[in-house]
Design a protein around this nucleic acid. Structure first.
Lengths: 211, 211
DNA sequence: GTCTATACTACGATAGAC
DNA sequence: GTCTATCGTAGTATAGAC
């Protein structure tokens, strides 16, 4: 299907070059169609960009772990919540490792530099749900009720994972490797999950001190 | 001076729109000069881009804390190293809060998406020194000798700070605010420094368990 | 629906006046 | 050194054939 091919390639090219850096000619050619089909199907470059954003928003979804998360939140059990956080993060790292991730990951990061309506659409989907779920899981796991505290913690946890894509160059330089192989990524995952454990424990201590 | 104005604006515009998204016409106009002066002084758009990268590389420098770091590393004192890490991170957050930071911060993040020689130049300067210093400080603070462990920890620490700029849109959404005011940033700084303490403690435990 | 033609705009580079 | 004028190229959009 032409539209599907256009979307796949659009996410890739927009993610790599941005809205202005990408050319509709190149996208159409890579999709094996004429440039005017972009106008026909999406009304133009910006329409394709927004459609690509919607497509990305859908791709982020991860129905498997959603049930685990919701159940953990509903249970109110700190141990289950902590395990759900770990699972959420590990799955996210795995998906970032996937070859297809470069497209949508860069698309999202790039979009946040000059936010347009595309980001609103992306965040309106599973990405926003994941964020809110992470905050709730942190509250359950630590007993911290203050939303601001939980939200800030969620951001620092998310940042530890995101840097793999957002500052890939720095990661390569620091690690002294050209590529991030499976062994390094396994160590990285261990580091992040251990960090999360340490942070959650610290938050519990903070809460108890305050009381 | 024309060249200085050109560099300042180039960093801003390239950071916001990227190499291909930016137009030399717009940069020249904002700098109050003719477009051909870019050709004259820098040989063209790419020359200006590289010059802007060098300019960014210089701006990152922070001679004040450099001495503190080097002294802490040389001392071999875990407590001093830990304090130096905290100072390094706090200063970095402060500088990210600065209004001028949007230019160079986005410039660097964007450059890492499609790395060119510009990133090599930036990393060859204070940015690389800071990275290496952070790794060494972590080794001193925790007693961990394995470089890979220290490097991975450095990346996760850096990521917690970087997300403020790399995923600003998500931060705003999660926190439910349009801007990150000083009070939120103060809480954020407290969260990150507490996280670092917790992570370093955890690393020390890991080392002792392994022994 | 899809492609080819073409119109129109904006870009970067360059030449030349001063 | 700095500006104006101009060229060639590449971009998006659009009209019209099929």
């Amino acid at each position: 299907m032409v539209q599907q091919r256009l979307l796949d390639i659009a996410v890739e090219v927009f993610g790599q070059n941005g809205l202005e850096g990408a050319s509709t000619r190149a996208i159409a050619k890579a999709a094996g169609t004429a440039m005017s089909s972009i106008t026909y199907h999406y009304g133009g470059k910006e329409g394709l960009y927004l459609a690509a954003a919607d497509y990305v928003a859908r791709q982020i979804g991860d129905s498997d772990s959603q049930e685990v998360r919701d159940a953990a939140i509903a249970s109110g059990d700190p141990a289950r919540a902590r395990e759900a956080i770990r699972q959420l993060v590990v799955r996210f790292i795995d998906r970032l490792q996937n070859e297809h991730s470069n497209g949508w990951a860069l698309f999202i990061i790039r979009e946040q530099m000059n936010p347009t309506e595309a980001f609103e659409r992306i965040y309106a989907g599973p990405m926003g749900e994941n964020s809110r779920a992470l905050v709730e899981l942190i509250r359950v796991a630590t007993g911290v009720e203050d939303y601001r505290v939980a939200r800030l913690a969620a951001i620092t946890i998310f940042g530890q994972v995101l840097i793999l894509k957002a500052a890939r160059g720095t990661c390569h330089k620091v690690l002294g490797t050209e590529t991030l192989g499976p062994d390094i990524l396994a160590d990285f995952t261990r580091r992040v999950t251990a960090n999360i454990d340490a942070i959650l424990d610290r938050m519990i201590s903070e809460r108890q001190e305050q009381a």
